[in-house]
Write a protein that binds this DNA or RNA. Structure first.
Lengths: 212, 212
DNA sequence: TAGATTGTTAATCGATTAACAATC
DNA sequence: TAGATTGTTAATCGATTAACAATC
């Protein structure tokens, strides 16, 4: 279904389209033009049409886009029709928060295991899944066809743990550790650096204060 | 200290520079050239020099950049020499995770209050701060000079709560709710949409699988 | 058919990279 | 002074926007 080499700028906008289309669908809206969607989302209609056309023509001249069809297509493009098995490494507050936030499950991201190096957490359950010691990771990953690892551990251990995970055959890492991972080509890494985000906010507050 | 209209692309890279320079400083490195930093960070030396020069000349020809000086300057640009008072709205797993992750405090982000609409959480303490009912927000914000609100509540209530916060005089919102907030100009919003991030990862896994 | 709106090409804008003169 | 490396201008590249012919 995909064409080749779509820029990450486009990919980064797809989840937002997906969210708006989902809302429209829930509201019972059947069709929408790029113009209407552009007003709703505060982006140009031109960008919307360009973005969608990277993946083929989803609309119809003189009509616009069918909301449900477009929603389903974007869902497929994002791979949400596939099931992914994930484990969370680091069962502290953040790891538990992500484990518990399982709207993700609706999208095909199934939590299979939780691991932590702190023996005090061992056996603690998050959504019915017990925390295991780190020593179990290798066997668990291989036995349970795990493709995504969520890294919610301190940056001191993140690089080494990521390397192990790659050896065990993981395909993707959702990295919350505040460090850049260096993984082989073909392993996907998506970083969520919360403190970077907070610093950006800090910059924008400061700049605005100074200018107004 | 700031010049005018720095692009968000540049701002977005500053925290990463800051992180690398902090590490170099901790390692006792005194000076670094754009070339060396470029190899370390996997970006072009040209981009590094352009980025820094948006804010004035921090280097010296023939020498490079003084690590500690540059670190301090970026810290100031990011506004990390100022103190911000923040509250967390939504004391569920994610709210608690952020409250507990207080490396932020080192950077001048001081947690002052936690709020939740769930009476069961009332009085529960996170780092010594008790969760309060939502009704208390208005008075608390005004009395405690709060400038940043962290929104870790479901999207159904986020838009309304954000509007109230703006009325109470908040200056910035760190938004973890999966919805776009519509706030007046001058109020800074930084979004962390975790499911968008996971969907991007999903796309990249799928695409890679299909191509190799 | 006439009107609407896409798909797509062309024009513009902005961000990144290359090159080099200035200068420590 | 000679060598190194920045600061900055110019060239390139890519992303966004505008325009319009194709077509439903």
């Amino acid at each position: 279904m995909e064409q080749k080499e779509i820029s990450q700028a486009v990919i980064g906008r797809l989840p937002r389209y997906f969210r708006y289309l989902g809302d429209l669908k829930d509201e019972g809206v059947e069709r929408i033009s790029s113009q209407e969607l552009s007003e709703l989302m505060q982006v140009t209609a031109s960008q919307i049409r360009q973005d969608f056309n990277n993946f083929g023509g989803f609309g119809q001249q003189g009509y616009g886009y069918n909301v449900e069809y477009l929603y389903d297509e974007i869902s497929k493009i994002l791979g949400l029709n596939q099931t992914h098995h994930l484990i969370i490494i680091g069962a502290g507050n953040l790891g538990q928060a992500i484990g518990n936030y399982m709207n993700f499950e609706r999208r095909g991201f199934i939590l299979k295991g939780l691991f932590d190096s702190n023996p005090a957490l061992e056996g603690k359950e998050v959504r019915g899944i017990a925390v295991q010691p780190m020593e179990n990771i290798e066997e668990f990953v291989k036995a349970n066809n795990i493709d995504i690892a969520v890294l919610t551990i301190p940056k001191t251990s993140a690089v080494a743990v990521a390397e192990s995970l790659v050896r065990y055959g993981i395909k993707a890492i959702w990295n919350f550790a505040h460090v850049d991972l260096n993984v082989p080509k073909g392993i996907q890494v998506e970083n969520v650096h919360l403190s970077d985000s907070l610093m950006k906010l800090s910059y924008n507050i400061t700049r605005y204060d100074n200018e107004n």
